[in-house]
């Protein structure tokens, strides 16, 4: 077995050259080149993560904007409906006012008419009393030959009329 047979004469050169070459591998390749390779990987990973984050943020923003748009849209719709409702209410109020005014006018006319009717009736009643008292004076004069005062005749007529 050369590993043992040659041990005494070769161990020093084996160890020496191993340290030389493994030292080169460690310091030049392991410490010099590997970290840069890993940096590249880390850089790429970070870039991918950043891109993903950016895409996520963009989507979130789009969602937020859509939400805002929806909110605005709802607000506009509500506003429009409020305007319509207000217009309706105003129109209703105006027509009600007009109706009320017309009603008042009609009422007034009715009241006037009623007043005129009652006045006319009162006049007519007076006329009837006058006529009745003159008639009564005439009747009494012709039948009894007595001249009755106008006031007495009127009182008598009023009494008879109120007794109905």
């Amino acid at each position: 077995m050369p590993q043992i047979a040659q041990l005494a004469e070769t161990y020093s050169s084996q160890v020496f050259w191993l340290l030389v070459f493994f030292g080169f591998v460690f310091f030049v390749i392991g410490r010099g080149m590997v970290p840069r390779v890993m940096d590249t990987v880390a850089l790429r990973d970070r870039q991918i993560a950043d891109d993903l984050a950016a895409a996520g943020a963009a989507r979130q923003q789009a969602d937020a904007e859509e939400e805002a748009w929806r909110l605005r849209e709802n607000e506009n719709r509500a506003q429009a409906q409020a305007i319509i409702a207000q217009a309706k209410a105003e129109a209703a109020a105006a027509s009600e006012k007009k109706l009320a005014a017309a009603q008042k006018r009609l009422d007034k006319k009715l009241a006037e008419a009623a007043e005129r009717i009652s006045a006319a009736r009162g006049e007519a009643l007076n006329e009837i009393e006058n006529v009745a008292s003159e008639a009564a004076q005439d009747i009494v004069q012709r039948l009894a030959g007595v001249t009755v005062a106008k006031t007495a005749a009127a009182a008598a007529v009023k009494k008879a009329l109120s007794h109905g």
């Binding site: 004469e9 070769t10 020093s12 050169s13 084996q14 020496f16 050259w17 191993l18 030389v20 070459f21 493994f22 080169f24 591998v25 030049v28 390749i29 080149m33 590997v34 840069r36 390779v37």
Partner: peptide
């Protein structure tokens, strides 16, 4: 006083080192 002959063993260490260096350098 220590023998440091460049042996066939050392040669293949050198070859492995160079091959590894080429391999990693290609990925840089």
């Amino acid at each position: 006083g220590y023998n440091i002959a460049f042996t066939n063993s050392a040669l293949w260490m050198a070859i492995a080192t160079v091959a590894l260096w080429i391999f990693v350098a290609g990925g840089m």
